[in-house]
Amino acid sequence: MGQHLGLVTVVVRDYDSAIAFYANVLGFEVREDTRLGDGKRWVVIAPPGAQTALLLARAVTAEQESRIGNQTGGRVGMFLYTDDFNSDYQRLRAAGVRFEAPPRCEPYGTVAVFQDLYGNRWDLLQPRNGDNSGSTHNQK
């Protein structure tokens, strides 16, 4: 049986500001934006050509709201793979993305940690030897 990870939920404060960040700043494509009623939407975004996508889910309870920006307890929770680290790093910096530290070379590749518009931590990562599986990456 073939399987793959289809969607990962990111809890957001507002659909439109989240779409603007992920699409206009990170360069993701909006694959679906369907209104479901009562202010809810089914919003799916992803890097161009990616199989796995993000589902943007607007927080509707106080508990969900408390998770915005810290869905992984302060750890890096998303890994944006690239095959041209320098170009993507410069493009994201020019677009106002906040990186926590300069890029560094690790045994698994070149990496720099950045935050999305809510403070969720991401790795911009160019894996060593073109390995996009993440299998050599140690959890931070």
Score class of each variant (00 low, 15 high):
1 M>A: 14
1 M>D: 05
1 M>V: 09
5 L>T: 10
6 G>V: 12
6 G>D: 02
7 L>S: 09
8 V>D: 05
11 V>S: 01
12 V>Y: 08
12 V>D: 03
15 Y>N: 07
15 Y>C: 05
16 D>W: 02
18 A>K: 03
19 I>A: 09
20 A>L: 14
21 F>A: 12
21 F>I: 01
23 A>G: 06
23 A>N: 15
28 F>E: 02
29 E>R: 13
33 D>M: 05
34 T>M: 03
35 R>V: 00
36 L>S: 10
36 L>R: 13
38 D>M: 10
39 G>F: 09
43 V>R: 11
44 V>D: 12
45 I>G: 11
46 A>K: 09
49 G>S: 12
50 A>F: 07
50 A>K: 13
51 Q>I: 10
51 Q>F: 07
51 Q>L: 07
51 Q>K: 08
53 A>R: 08
53 A>N: 08
54 L>M: 13
55 L>V: 09
56 L>H: 07
58 R>P: 00
58 R>L: 10
59 A>V: 11
60 V>A: 09
64 Q>T: 14
65 E>N: 11
66 S>G: 12
71 Q>C: 05
72 T>C: 04
72 T>L: 10
73 G>L: 09
75 R>M: 14
76 V>P: 09
80 L>A: 10
80 L>Y: 03
80 L>P: 01
81 Y>K: 08
81 Y>F: 14
84 D>T: 15
85 F>P: 01
86 N>E: 15
87 S>V: 04
87 S>P: 01
89 Y>R: 09
89 Y>K: 05
89 Y>M: 04
89 Y>P: 09
91 R>I: 00
92 L>T: 13
92 L>W: 06
93 R>I: 00
94 A>K: 07
95 A>I: 12
96 G>Q: 05
96 G>W: 08
97 V>N: 04
97 V>E: 05
99 F>W: 11
100 E>T: 03
101 A>G: 11
102 P>G: 14
103 P>F: 10
103 P>Y: 03
104 R>Y: 12
104 R>G: 12
106 E>N: 02
109 G>D: 00
109 G>F: 01
111 V>K: 05
113 V>F: 09
114 F>M: 03
115 Q>P: 04
116 D>Q: 00
116 D>P: 01
119 G>A: 06
119 G>E: 06
120 N>T: 15
121 R>T: 14
121 R>S: 08
124 L>R: 03
126 Q>T: 04
126 Q>M: 13
127 P>K: 03
127 P>N: 06
127 P>I: 11
127 P>Q: 03
128 R>M: 04
131 D>C: 04
131 D>H: 10
131 D>N: 07
132 N>P: 04
132 N>S: 00
133 S>F: 06
133 S>L: 12
136 T>E: 15
136 T>I: 03
137 H>P: 09
138 N>T: 15
140 K>E: 04
140 K>A: 13
